[in-house]
Nucleic acid binder design. Structure first.
Length: 517
RNA sequence: GGCGCAUUCGUCUAACGGUUAGGACGCAAGAUUCUCAUUCUUGUAAUAAGAGUUCGAUUCUCUUAUGCGCUACCA
């Protein structure tokens, strides 16, 4: 038990990495780091038909973005290389070893034959299974004579190697999350270990590699629980039980509405990404959105994912990666699936967005502003930093910035009708004209000092409102309407400070001309 | 169909036989404010159903229901 902790994340490169897979990887990472162990990336590309160009690169880039570093694996190297299963050639020897010692057998049934049998059983409302009850009646090295088998092998007749489950044996598996799980071998089917294309299936490759790579804990999705007894039996068949890894089967990530596993399609349909990074399908050209491109911060994605199925047992919800490492234990992982919650994801992002330095946000914002291609707007760093400082608390994402701060850069082109009706009525226009006159005075007295202009204007406004017994809201909101075009935005005096006396006067003048006195 | 796993507020979850069943998101109200947000305060809302074990069950057992997963020469 004092074995070195070594865990692996083992995706197959069949497309972009699903966010559920990211969570699995995260839990592996946290467990490894917590226990001073190794975190390994192994690519399970034993299915040639499903290989997708660019998927492996995508996976590596995704973890780079998230800040989850592998100690070993594809793209990193290590003592157990190669880490790509297609480059490992040991599997057939192991499969043959199992045939030799009676734990596996050759099967010559063609896929077509098996399909036909499945269909036939289906039509009789029965279930076809290649197992201890049926294997004697099928074409394999258990039912055929030694001579027949030799002849078939000599003639290069395609075959697969299947695991031979013993009859009526209970396999007990001690899952770190679910406790004792028991299954009977008579109900299990003789899974293919080695395919006729010369490559192993997941089951064989996985067990062999986990053993060879000295994996101590297998932390993977719940979808693997049903085949785990097979894996346990494989360790037994190889006499590797001593060093068999401990298993932990994670609950699934469910879609937000209704039930079911979160799938690729759900994301864009419901308006949130299911992938860490944007992905363009190389065949169809179809684009699926990613968290990174949607403006999520990696810290937020990690924090959100960590809490989806795990908790520290305290009331803390905000965790840095380092804090997660410290707090993480497998026994606090929940057993049931968790629905993804978009609003909570936004809340996490809001939190981490507030933690960013105004200057860093401003630099990114300036890029966005430049892309807007608006001529003559002020994109000086010091100015944008001030704008960001005023509006960032209203934002969940970088992309929310423009909606909340456009009026610092461009004058309103139109005025919100509802606000006009509510505020710009009675003698509002006349009052605004009076205010405009005084603003021009103040501007003359405070040349080149927008702060002082704003300050003095504020003082004047309060005096003006008091002397004329006006409604403060009425007056201020009319000015707001003139400066912003809507009934929203940050403190008026702050707006005046930043856009300056000239612009303030210009906008008020225009509003009076458009909306009337 | 078979096998397996699961089931606490709308959502994520806490409570590992004794609590007014706690927190967070959301939602609602109030406070603050020139507005909209932010922020703060308060409120809202749950043990799937039924048996059993027990002095006492969210917690242990069983049954049912529901959901999910697996049932490929895919992972």
């Amino acid at each position: 038990m004092d074995r070195k902790v070594r865990v692996r994340f083992a995706p197959s490169p069949t497309g972009p990495l699903h966010i559920g897979g990211v969570r699995t990887a995260l839990y592996n990472y946290l467990f490894a780091k917590k226990n001073n162990g190794d975190f390994i990336l192994r690519i399970e590309d034993t299915d040639q038909n499903r290989f997708v160009e660019g998927a492996e690169e995508y996976i590596i880039e995704a973890f780079k973005w998230l800040g989850l570093q592998f100690n070993e694996g594809v793209g990193v190297g290590g003592n157990f290389a190669p880490y790509r299963q297609s480059e490992r050639t040991v599997y057939k020897d192991y499969a043959l070893k199992l045939v030799e010692n009676g734990w596996a057998y050759y099967a010559f049934d063609t896929p077509e034959e098996l399909d036909a049998m499945r269909k036939e059983c289906e039509s009789q409302k029965k279930n076809f299974q290649y197992d201890c009850n049926t294997r004697q009646g099928l074409r394999n090295s258990l039912s055929l004579s030694e001579n027949e088998v030799d002849a078939l092998l000599k003639n290069n007749v395609p075959y697969v190697i299947r695991f031979k489950f013993p009859v009526n044996t209970d396999v007990v598996l001690n899952d770190l999350i679910r406790g004792e799980v028991k299954m009977n071998t008579s109900l299990l089917d003789d899974k293919v270990l080695f395919k006729s294309d010369g490559l192993p299936t997941y089951h064989l490759a996985n067990v062999v590699d986990d053993h060879l790579m000295e994996i101590s804990h297998v932390i993977r999705g719940e979808e693997w629980l049903p085949s785990c007894p097979l894996h346990v039996m494989l360790y037994r068949a190889f006499s590797w039980e001593e060093t068999m890894p401990q298993f932990a089967h994670l609950p699934l990530l469910l879609k937000p509405e209704g039930n079911g596993k979160l799938s690729k399609r759900d994301g864009d349909r419901l308006g949130f990404p299911v992938f860490p990074l944007q992905w363009k399908d190389p065949k169809t050209g179809e684009i699926s959105s990613g968290y990174r491109e949607s403006g999520y911060l990696p810290q937020a994605v990690i924090n959100m994912l960590a809490l989806l199925g795990w908790n520290a047992g305290t009331e803390q919800e905000i965790f840095s990666l380092e804090e997660l490492v410290q707090a993480f234990t497998i026994d606090r992982i929940s057993k049931h699936g968790a629905k993804f919650d978009l609003t909570k994801a936004k809340w996490f992002n809001h939190h981490y967005f507030q933690e960013l330095a105004n200057e860093d946000i401003a630099k990114d914002y300036i890029k966005i502003l430049d892309n807007l291609d608006l001529k003559g707007i002020n994109t000086d760093l010091t100015f944008v930093v001030q704008v960001v400082g005023l509006v960032k608390e209203r934002c969940d994402f970088l992309s929310d910035l423009w909606d909340n701060s456009h009026y610092f850069f461009v004058a309103p082109q139109t005025y919100d009708g509802k606000v006009v009706n509510k505020r710009w009525k009675d003698d509002a226009g006349r009052r605004m004209a009076e205010i405009l006159v005084e603003m021009r005075h103040i501007a003359q007295q405070t040349p080149d000092d927008d702060n002082l202009f704003a300050h003095n204007t504020e003082e004047f406004l309060h005096r003006f409102i008091e002397e004329n017994q006006l409604n403060i809201g009425q007056i201020m909101n009319c000015i707001r309407l003139a400066l912003v075009g809507e009934g929203k935005g940050v403190n008026l005096v702050d707006i005046m400070k930043l856009i300056g006396s000239n612009e303030t006067i210009k906008r008020l003048d225009k509003a009076i001309k458009v909306l009337g006195c």
